[in-house]
Amino acid sequence: MASQGTKRSYEQMETDGERQNATEIRASVGKMIDGIGRFYIQMCTELKLSDYEGRLIQNSLTIERMVLSAFDERRNKYLEEHPSAGKDPKKTGGPIYKRVDRKWMRELVLYDKEEIRRIWRQANNGDDATAGLTHMMIWHSNLNDTTYQRTRALVRTGMDPRMCSLMQGSTLPRRSGAAGAAVKGVGTMVMELIRMIKRGINDRNFWRGENGRKTRSAYERMCNILKGKFQTAAQRAMMDQVRESRNPGNAEIEDLIFLARSALILRGSVAHKSCLPACVYGPAVASGYDFEKEGYSLVGIDPFKLLQNSQVYSLIRPNENPAHKSQLVWMACNSAAFEDLRVLSFIRGTKVSPRGKLSTRGVQIASNENMDAMESSTLELRSRYWAIRTRSGGNTNQQRASAGQISVQPAFSVQRNLPFDKPTIMAAFTGNTEGRTSDMRAEIIRMMEGAKPEEMSFQGRGVFELSDERAANPIVPSFDMSNEGSYFFGDNAEEYDN
């Protein structure tokens, strides 16, 4: 993207840094990872977990959730003011799984939030270390993106479920800051804005008074975040219109849905970061690795190297396929839920299948599930090659597409044709070009129609051997075009429920 120079890199967003050079960025990201790792080690000690239990991804998720809940100030305040039966607002906890007599047992633990905050700050040299908290939120978000298709949420806001490739980060909490905003897809931002506008339509006082002023500035800020994701002048001009509207209503909703559809071809720039579970960072720190000293990046080879040398386990339900569970977590670790499966298959070195073909449910185990038949197995999170994460949407291309997802959002900077089903997408653009945004709409449609099938995206960008740390010898991959490109292809993934 041309304006790259004016933006802070995501590592800076990730670490609240002012302008830093590459070495400083690597050190501050490393410091953040160190903090998460030290916190995780301490929690495993508190909970008396064995090494194996500490490497269980379900335990990692519970521990991450506990610290996120302990620092969720708004919710904590709300819980104190609106006490609900049987919930102690000062405590947080969740299921911890232990191996007892050759069987997995679930144990519900409860801790004072104050105590968890103390352990977290102690692991982070006394700081609140917001960057580390956001990092864990993005890992949870990436896992949700890989596990669930947001059909219901899309339909509720009037969008087409086939636009799911635009929904990265749709389950990120509001408090995820600049680093969170960077990884949100165009569809996620559109959905947040539509929800806001709908509230304004239904509630006369939404934009009024002292609160209304705050609401208005939040609305304009979200519009600017979305505008910054678009790469064409016409899309940005249309966002200006939406932002400046005196009284946002149905016309703005129409414009936003139009823009979301246009992003299936004229893709937005959305950041991709490899955020790993805390149970990967903990053992690495415990083994003596100093992330701050060595430096770390979320968008280069580092996460690949770390996963190459990590042992992570997962509980497996009786009829689940461990290899499929591994694929789910591998995609989440690489922030690749909406990437082209052919690119992923090449990088991973084994075939990556669409969601609907995987015999696996989510990673988390519900409290009512029976533990008797639970097994555990090693997650295979290694890769054959590594590639640089991208934040450009890439230019655009036609490809055989599917009944489910009709476009992709690249996660890796790797040369390819970008699949999208042009006739299906263009069919949504018939007729409606009147109104105050008509010239911009016409211009956007013209650009979409001009998108050429034979153009290559990320020209000359390749993948790298894991021994090639400096990215000196790019390998331009070859793809098996007979395979499906979309992950949520004609899909039956479970729906995400809060």
Rank of each mutant, 00 (worst) to 15 (best):
R361P: 02
F206I: 04
Q42C: 12
A332D: 10
D340I: 02
P277A: 11
I119A: 04
R117G: 02
R99H: 09
E469D: 13
A493L: 09
A336P: 00
I388G: 07
T157F: 00
T45Q: 02
N417G: 09
D302G: 00
A401N: 15
D88S: 13
W330F: 05
G132E: 05
E320Y: 02
V408D: 03
I316E: 05
V67L: 05
D112L: 13
D127K: 11
D112E: 12
L466I: 13
N319A: 08
A403G: 08
A129W: 00
G180I: 06
M238L: 15
M238Q: 14
Y487N: 11
M239P: 01
G300N: 09
L358T: 14
Q399T: 10
F412D: 01
M440Y: 15
R317H: 10
V463W: 00
Q235T: 14
Q42F: 04
R416D: 01
T157Y: 01
G485P: 00
R102I: 01
M189A: 06
E465P: 00
D88N: 15
R382F: 05
A123W: 07
Q364L: 13
A260S: 14
K87P: 07
N492K: 14
R441S: 13
S262D: 06
Y52V: 10
T390M: 04
A129M: 09
M371D: 03
N309D: 01
A263F: 02
T430V: 05
Q327L: 15
F412L: 15
S376E: 02
M481L: 11
R204Y: 13
N205Y: 09
K113A: 01
D160H: 04
D34T: 07
L344I: 10
F304S: 02
D290F: 07
H135T: 06
N432A: 14
A332E: 05
G212S: 07
F488A: 01
N395H: 15
E73Y: 00
E495Q: 06
T134Q: 03
P474F: 03
E192T: 08
I194W: 09
R317K: 12
I41G: 13
M374H: 05
Q327N: 14
P423E: 02
I119T: 11
I301Q: 08
R389W: 11
A85D: 00
K90P: 00
G249C: 07
S262A: 15
D145H: 13
T378M: 11
K229S: 07
E380C: 11
A85C: 12
G126Q: 10
P318K: 08
R106S: 05
G54V: 05
